[in-house]
Write a protein that binds this DNA or RNA. Sequence first.
DNA 1: AGCGGTCAAGTTGAT
DNA 2: ATCAACTTGACCGCT
Length: 310
Amino acid sequence: MHNRKMGIRWGLCCLFREEPIRFAIRQATHLARFDRVRQLALLSATILANGQALLAAIAYCAGNGIGAFRVNSRIFPLKTHPSIGYRLADLPDHAAIDRLYRQAGRAAAEQDIRLTFHPDQFTLLSSPDAGVTARSLEELAYHAEVAEYVGADVVTLHGGGGYGDKQAALERLMRELDRLPDPLRDRLALENDDRIYTPADLLPVCVSTGIPFVYDVHHHRCHPDGLSIEEATRRAVATWRREPLLHLSSPKDGWNSPNPRAHHDFIDLADLPDCWRDLPITVEVEAKAKEIALRHLLAALDKTAQISSL
DNA sequence: AGCGGTCAAGTTGAT
DNA sequence: ATCAACTTGACCGCT
């Protein structure tokens, strides 16, 4: 059982700064020089190594008061690449990979480490370009496949582009959401971003489709919509039929800098909304110092808890 | 061994 | 029209 502080389950995102836990990737241009057998051997070895890294990441979280871990989308490198892409059954170590990733899923479940995914900016369901949507659906299918493997319960997606007409784009997004296969639909969540889609834009979509809303308070502060943090939090939490997921970060050079969107190495406790403190929620910490930032944050929370109990 | 250019994908906005 | 930013290291070719 991990160490829950103030009602919040704290989550680490993808990487470690100091801890020697590394997830490897492969480059398509490099692999393209080899024959298919060699490509699959290299990919297979990388995926096995990444599975071991995932086990290590879960163990680290369990031992350090961290209750959630976001898995890097590239844990199966180039899985959906148009020319290098592959099926799991094609990999020479398929059976061992299967065992290892299911083992990681069991380890996460046993130690109560929530696993999540967050596909990158190339994955979106609002594009007017059918090819972009088709490739995104394939990418999401890959995420759902790995999520099922390891028991991850959230795949967080942004709204995508605005294309000069956000309402039309949101209607395309809703149409795609309505026809997702169940394994994906059951895991997908929508998150506000810092340039285009605000909580006020996405909450109605979430309510109408039943897809939960991931509230990123840093994005909301960069790109406000008239909703207060308290109101956005309340409405976001209400979209979840399981533990809600929220995102927290602090600005690299302060809120008055030219670019407050950039993430700081650490979390300033002042950026944690007071109304989050006692909620039964998962908060993923997007701080560049990774596990060091979590360590500092947990220590700072301990200190304030001690002071308030005097 | 170390350095630096490059890396699959989409969209926006600055120049 | 072109290209950096987004976010981000890690990889790989070259010296």
